[in-house]
Amino acid sequence: MILLHLTANTGPEECCLAVRKALCRLQNEACSLQLRVELLEQVPSAIAGNFHSVLLALDGEQASALAERWRGSVLWTCPSPYRPGHRRKNWFIGVEVFEAEASSPAGQALRDQDLRFETLRAGGPGGQHVNKTDSAVRATHLPTGLSVRVETERSQHANKRLARALLAHKLSEQARRAQGEARQQRWRQHYEVQRGNAALVFKGEGFEEG
């Protein structure tokens, strides 16, 4: 399983729109490759439908190849749909790629003895659409107390796998934050360099690759 993190970083609302368009494009590409794709997390922006960031899980034979295609900076060239006449037309977003297990602290796989899984009744709308099985899963990392809940799949086994991957990613983020402002500054400098070296370029409102 591969995790992809799409982020507008500190960019304006146009970059958040680019995240939305990139997400749609990436989901379509994953579907054409017969990959399983799950939206694990999303951070909405000020405009409905746009995102500061999203976290995806890709699973399937060509998941790594698709992830590598998107890794790095993505450039969207288009006049601002929110600020008519604005001179800027280049909007950048970043795409980070993580192996699910390798994203845990210090690059080490999560140990089974450090995890606790609980099965829960999945939520949903009323009536016949309610998932009446205990397929939702909460995973807790015992040493830190960090926990996640997943109920996107019908299968408890699939939700357990996704919960483990999401927990590993969150622990990795926590470890990176703990390393302090110096590392954040290095990343900002790296991001600025990457802006001039886009892995993918899309153009126009239709987000066509060019």
Results as ranks from 00 to 15, higher is better:
S32G: 01
L33R: 15
L33K: 13
Q34G: 02
L35E: 00
V37T: 05
V37M: 10
E38I: 14
L40Q: 00
Q42M: 10
V43H: 13
V43E: 08
V43D: 06
P44A: 02
P44G: 02
S45Q: 00
S45Y: 00
S45H: 05
S45E: 00
I47T: 01
A48H: 06
G49V: 00
G49P: 09
G49R: 02
N50M: 11
F51R: 02
H52I: 04
S53P: 07
V54W: 08
V54A: 04
L55D: 00
A57N: 05
D59G: 09
G60S: 10
E61G: 03
Q62I: 00
A63W: 03
A63T: 02
S64P: 04
S64Q: 13
S64G: 11
L66W: 02
L66Q: 05
E68F: 12
G72V: 07
G72D: 13
V74Q: 11
V74P: 12
V74I: 15
T77S: 09
P79D: 04
P79C: 09
P81F: 00
P81D: 01
P81N: 14
P81W: 00
R83W: 15
R83M: 08
R83Y: 05
P84T: 03
G85I: 06
K89Y: 02
N90H: 15
F92R: 15
G94V: 05
V95S: 06
V95R: 11
E96G: 07
V97R: 14
F98E: 12
E99D: 12
E101I: 08
E101D: 15
A102Y: 13
S103W: 13
S103G: 15
P105S: 11
A106H: 13
G107T: 12
G107D: 09
Q108G: 08
Q108H: 12
Q108C: 11
A109T: 13
L110P: 15
R111E: 13
R111N: 09
D114A: 08
D114C: 11
L115W: 13
F117L: 14
F117D: 07
F117V: 09
E118V: 10
E118S: 11
T119A: 14
L120G: 01
L120A: 01
A122I: 08
G124A: 13
G124E: 10
P125S: 10
P125Q: 15
G127R: 12
G127K: 05
G127V: 04
G127C: 13
V130P: 07
N131F: 08
D134G: 11
D134S: 14
S135V: 04
S135Y: 12
A136K: 09
A136L: 10
V137R: 08
V137W: 11
R138G: 00
T140Q: 10
H141C: 06
H141V: 04
L142R: 13
L142Y: 07
